[in-house]
């Protein structure tokens, strides 16, 4: 017979899913929030998004060329990291802030540890926290939506130290639709939730992490606010909870892989977020909580191995 036969061990067929398709789904899910960011922050928003995405991709390309590794920018993971970082930055950022952030995210947090799947923290989040600590002035000058970039307080700062929402705080409708101050992506809860539903529907993320994370914050703030529903909803919609719980805590590499582990992980994220928001020095605790739980993820994985089929304990 002509030609050569390909011989390999079973299985001989593969699902059509690829890393690139997974990342593309994340980008599609982030599309509403990105469009929202562009609508609210116009050219300032566009500038930040372009700078982070471009820098992220170019950093990955240069790093992989220099270290003579296979170039993987086509898998779109650098684009996702860049976009997520952009959504975590204020629209008023000077040009070098997004660039520096993307370099930190891709080179230090992702590539130094071995590239995709090997970062022990969420790269975009780690970069955000690093910028936040190093350049807190720039990182906290949140601008109100609109072309004029008027700086203002974030919704969370209104309730810092309070057990109820003060009268001068933004309305829930504004929180829901994003007409508030904050980073590019933390403005509109509804656009972020829309993307989250898409990701769960497509099987890209499992429901456990976002649901338990958000649920835990809801439960704690409900008790702390003495069952003031308005106060709780305010906590859920304001700040980075939605983007954090749906897009950052669900990062594959830095979250546990076991279903039970994901629940404990999300529970931990929710508790730490609430503690920082209610009792800590910062108004927002989502970023820190995820990074802290990222570090605990391997340990959680270790102790939450599922019961093997037929295992007798």
């Amino acid at each position: 017979m002509e030609g050569k036969l390909f011989v390999s061990s079973s299985p001989h067929i593969r699902d059509e899913n690829t890393i690139q398709k997974v990342m593309l789904d994340v980008l599609i899910a982030l599309l509403p929030a990105t469009i929202g960011a562009l609508y609210y922050f116009r050219t300032n928003g566009a500038k930040v998004i372009l700078l982070t995405v471009l820098t992220a991709v170019v950093s990955e390309l240069i790093f992989q060329k220099v270290t003579k590794r296979p170039v993987t920018i086509n898998d779109l993971s650098a684009v996702v990291t860049g976009l997520l970082l952009a959504l975590n930055l204020p629209a008023s950022s000077p040009w070098w802030l997004p660039v520096l952030g993307a370099v930190i995210a891709i080179i230090i947090v992702k590539q130094f540890f071995g590239g995709i799947g090997h970062n022990f923290m969420n790269p975009a989040l780690a970069a955000r926290i690093m910028l936040m600590i190093s350049y807190s002035g720039h990182m906290t000058s949140w601008v109100k939506p609109g072309p004029d970039a008027i700086s203002g307080a974030t919704p969370l700062s209104f309730i810092k130290g309070a057990t109820e929402v003060p009268g001068n705080a933004p309305s829930l409708t504004d929180l829901l639709f994003g007409n508030i101050g904050g980073s590019l992506g933390e403005t509109s809860a509804i656009l972020l939730i829309l993307g989250g539903i898409y990701l769960i529907y497509r099987g890209v993320i499992s429901w456990e992490i976002p649901t338990v994370f958000i649920g835990t914050v809801a439960a704690i703030t409900l008790v702390f606010g003495q069952f003031d529903i308005y106060y709780t909803i305010y906590h859920l919609l304001a700040g980075g909870l939605m983007i954090g719980a749906i897009y950052m805590a669900t990062d594959y590499a830095s979250a546990p892989v076991t279903p039970r582990g994901r629940i404990y992980f999300a529970l931990g994220c929710g508790i730490i977020t609430s503690i920082i928001r209610l009792f800590g020095g910062y108004p927002e605790g989502v970023g820190f909580s995820i990074l802290l739980m990222n570090i605990a993820a391997p340990l959680i994985d270790k102790y939450t191995s599922p019961r093997v089929f037929g295992e007798v304990k």
């Binding site: 036969l5 390909f6 390999s8 001989h12 067929i13 593969r14 690829t18 890393i19 997974v22 993987t72 898998d75 993971s77 071995g114 590239g115 995709i116 799947g117 090997h118 499992s206 594959y252 590499a253 546990p256 892989v257 076991t258 279903p259 191995s305 599922p306 019961r307 093997v308 089929f309 037929g310 295992e311």
Partner: peptide
């Protein structure tokens, strides 16, 4: 169809854990 696609790095998505009928990782 005979070609098995080239393996890439594991991104730890956990899909294999979700679907393993023996509940392995």
């Amino acid at each position: 169809e005979a070609r098995i696609p080239k393996p890439e790095q594991c991104m730890r998505c956990g899909k294999c854990v979700e679907i393993c009928p023996a509940n392995l990782q």
